[in-house]
Simulated scan of single mutants.
Amino acid sequence: MRSQGSFQRDFWFIVAASVAWGTVGVANQAIYAHTATNALSLAFFRLAIAAPLFLIACLRLLGRRFLSIKLRDLGVMVLMGAMQALYQASYSAAIAYSGVTISTLIALCVAPIIVVLCSTFLMHERPTRSTLLALLCAFFGTILLVVSRTDPQQGNFSLVGIGLALLSATGYAAFILFGRLFTTSYHSVQINFVAFGTGALILLAFALPGGLVATYPTGDWLLLFYLGSIPTALAYGLFQAGMRSVSATAASIITLFEPLTAALLAWLLFHEQLGPFGILGGLLLVGALLLLAYKK
């Protein structure tokens, strides 16, 4: 059984990963300002840059042992890569149909609910009262935060868009749940090398028909390397390591710290106003984190 010290360490690993993910929007926005690229191209390069970084980490930390993966487990890791690609591709497509607001709300808020249901009924991880309260705080906090930052006229209730956003949430939740299965059996970099290598290949297949954008100024290549190394390779490595002693349910809730980070960066860098609802949403998210961090 994991000690409280191990839980605290792993908890903050996942918080750090969520903060890193919150910088993705700012980096993407900077690239869009200089280059006529598209979401699938950016998603592909994120994963394509991260995969060799995971390989280097595997060779340094595990040596040849990184190849010691059971065939059945290898299949699940490949499936994790497919779920990561599904999450990225479906979310990008959902925005085209339903706009940012609806797509983001569904993708971010539905995923923890899927994780809670699957963890409870399939993996027998019974959430505590404090975890459920944290889920409610994070759920409503995310809604307030996202709605306060987005023009309501940007979205519409397209059934296709809603379906794609639900598919995105399902892919994200499945990635978390499958990853939880291997936390004690394999190193986090080992899991992610297989998953992100697979995801990059799948996203490449999606991006090529629509036109893969591979020409960027030097500054944007540096931003792409940042996207692949920090909020992808480092963040997912920390996230996977953090799930050693943090339940899948708690991990999925902690990841909702991502929109709060994005909102704070937008406020600091682009002077976007949060408004009273955004501030309330941020406070609810912080409250959810505190409930999880100091639960008994």
Rank of each mutant, 00 (worst) to 15 (best):
M1N: 11
M1Y: 13
M1E: 14
Q4S: 12
W12F: 15
A17R: 00
A20F: 06
G25N: 07
A27N: 02
N28M: 14
Q29E: 14
Y32L: 14
T35I: 14
A36E: 15
N38W: 08
A39H: 08
A39Y: 00
L42A: 13
F44A: 09
P52C: 10
F54N: 02
F54G: 00
L59H: 06
L71F: 15
G75R: 01
L79Y: 04
L79H: 07
L86T: 11
Y97S: 12
Y97Q: 11
S98L: 08
V100W: 10
S103E: 13
T104M: 08
L108S: 02
C109P: 05
A111I: 05
I113K: 02
T120A: 11
M123A: 13
R126T: 14
R126N: 10
R126P: 06
T128S: 15
F140I: 04
G141C: 06
I143Y: 03
L145I: 05
S148R: 02
I162C: 05
L166P: 06
L166F: 09
A173G: 04
A174S: 15
A174R: 09
F175K: 03
I176P: 01
R180F: 09
R180E: 08
V189F: 15
V189E: 13
A200K: 06
I202A: 06
I202W: 09
A205K: 11
P209E: 09
A214S: 14
T215D: 13
Y216M: 11
P217L: 07
T218Y: 14
D220S: 13
W221N: 03
W221R: 03
L224D: 09
I230S: 01
L238F: 02
A241E: 10
S245H: 02
S245F: 03
T249V: 12
A250Q: 05
S252C: 07
I254K: 00
L269Q: 02
F270V: 15
H271K: 15
H271Y: 12
Q273L: 12
G281V: 00
G282A: 11
G282R: 08
L291G: 09
L292Y: 06
L292M: 04
L292F: 04
Y294L: 14
K295V: 01
K295T: 11
